[in-house]
Nucleic acid binder design. Structure first.
Lengths: 199, 199
DNA sequence: GTTGCGATGTATCGGACCGATACATCGGCC
DNA sequence: GGCCGATGTATCGGTCCGATACATCGCAAC
């Protein structure tokens, strides 16, 4: 999950950890609250040792350091991460491989959706329909509770169920719309289509 | 989080793990998906070693076993957990101690809300207002994104933000209503008020 | 001018929780 | 008689979070 999100952001431009977290928070803020450093930094380390990203190397300008202490542990200047060619392949791979974990968690779906502009139409449709199915299941569960056991629940629990049911119904409608658009080929707005071509 | 949920359910009646999970899933299904056994059983063990719950001992009827293999590891019959007197105190303690973690996570808020019928009015109000504040913050964040950087985002990210913003606005309205009701003293429905008194 | 303070920035540790998996029992259905 | 799905207990590895620590920078107040 985090892998995909990080690779996706670094695909747009190199960044250091702090900035990465801010972008993550705003871009994915709709579905998950925030990414913790306790996840971010270990993940960055892992991605690096797997070869998907590399340290330093901003493309042009800013050679390295004025003196001697620039980006090692001494002064610990900001470490800029750049996605590698293998990382870009890995990103596409993760984008397309949308298993059940993509539909189940809010976060998983949110991350995938956030990169829909880079996802091929077939995968988009698959994810949207999978997600819809999950939310429908949740919805049915809550409907059952409300219809079958309403009198046995206190007012607050009842209210909670009602609110949850409402949210589910809304999300299903939202997904229906998106699916219909996908089917027509009319995505929300055909974006600029190729902000960058690889290498 | 799980502690509170489990103690709350066992407060209503003794149960074994499987049943506990089912109840947890339906009762809290509105805000969090499901509780995993990988969380449930270790937590039960911890609660037991802390003295908040105890194994076996349904209060009346069903003495223990027909033969010899009933609820030990041999046949591994269902293990029924019962809340202890200390556990009930602990439950009240957790109910009232509603720190920031209560507002931050969906799950945390959901669990607390699910037991509002047993929570004193002041704490209810505190939690609802805290939650509202958090959701408002999220909402403002998304509004900023939409107003300040709309043109720099692709259509899907934009749509995600819009949907998230809408959900936040709805939740704030919902909370406003609940808060207004609390202030009037008119909770959704004044429940039976004292289902049981301690000891 | 220095002192303090908030934003920027990197990093780790313990713990909570999840997903997959294993295994055992029970009831019914073919 | 055998299979299968629901019930039931349990563990393991891994992901992610929350708290915390610490260091640098710019700027504003004094």
């Amino acid at each position: 999950m985090l892998d995909l999100a990080i690779l996706g952001l670094l695909h747009e431009s190199p960044m250091h950890g702090y900035e990465l977290r801010k972008q993550l928070t705003t871009k994915l803020g709709a579905f998950r609250a925030a990414i913790s450093y306790g996840s971010l930094y270990p993940t960055l380390r892992r991605l690096q040792s797997d070869g998907w990203i590399s340290e330093g190397a901003p493309p042009a300008g800013m050679p390295a350091s004025p003196d001697e202490v620039p980006l090692l542990t001494g002064k610990r200047g900001r470490v800029v991460y750049t996605i590698t060619a293998e990382g870009k392949e890995r990103f596409q791979e993760l984008l397309t491989a949308a298993g059940p974990e993509t539909y189940d968690s809010e976060a998983g779906f949110g991350v995938h959706f956030a990169f829909f502009a880079r996802t091929d139409p077939a995968t988009r449709l698959r994810i949207l329909e999978g997600r819809r199915r999950r939310v429908e299941e949740r919805r049915e569960g809550m409907r059952d509770v409300l219809s079958r056991a309403a009198e046995r629940l206190d007012a607050y629990t009842l209210e909670l169920q009602r609110h949850g049911l409402d949210a589910c119904e809304r999300e299903v409608r939202w997904l229906e719309e998106l699916i219909a658009n996908e089917r027509k080929g009319t995505t929300p707005q055909p974006p600029s289509a190729d902000p960058e071509r690889s290498s």
